[in-house]
Amino acid sequence: MTSSAHHPAPMSPVERRVAALEALLTERGLVPAGFIEEITRRYESEIGPMNGAKVVARAWADPEYKRRLLADGTAAIAELGFGGPEGHHMVVVENTSTMHNVIVCTLCSCYPWPVLGLPPAWYKDPPYRARMVREPRALLAEMGCPLPEEVEIWVLDSSAEVRYLVLPQRPPGTGGMTEAELAALVTRDSMIGVARL
């Protein structure tokens, strides 16, 4: 830490507002000591797309697991130890060579946190939220995921009730891979549905 050698940067208006909220909520006893650090640590290091990648790899490797996953996403994901806030009512949708699912939250930023972590910046931005509904094929192409005309696109609007996770297609030539090797191939974007593997 070298910050002690410098004057602290002046706080921006939003930083001041957050500091005021923190002081108020701490005074009301709602923020136990260490709580902010613990939540931040969890979201920066434990909760993220690597969890979803493990779910996808298991589904690719184990047809019986895949069947359970598509039938009851929440329960099958919980088998691997992932769940909790923002992870209730998980619905897993499968991408195939003729059907492409992509997820969006048109109202705010609903997202399957336990398996994908926090949403990326673009997921929360108005252009993505509006255009993925209006012109998904064009937006997907702009995002580097052009789809042939014959592939049907399903845009799924996440909500407080349902959180979607896309099960991407298993890439060709991965037959001999272990589950861990498969998981390393799975990207966050493929589980949102804005990329194919």
Binding site: V18, E22, L25, L30, V31, F35, I36, S45, M50, T187
Partner: peptide, 28 residues
Amino acid sequence: PGLDLPRRNGELAFDAPWQSTVFALAAA
């Protein structure tokens, strides 16, 4: 777990400390 993959696709979960703070305050 978590040391590499959460930062895949080039994005950190938070861009600044106040963002993680206000996220955690809502959780609290």
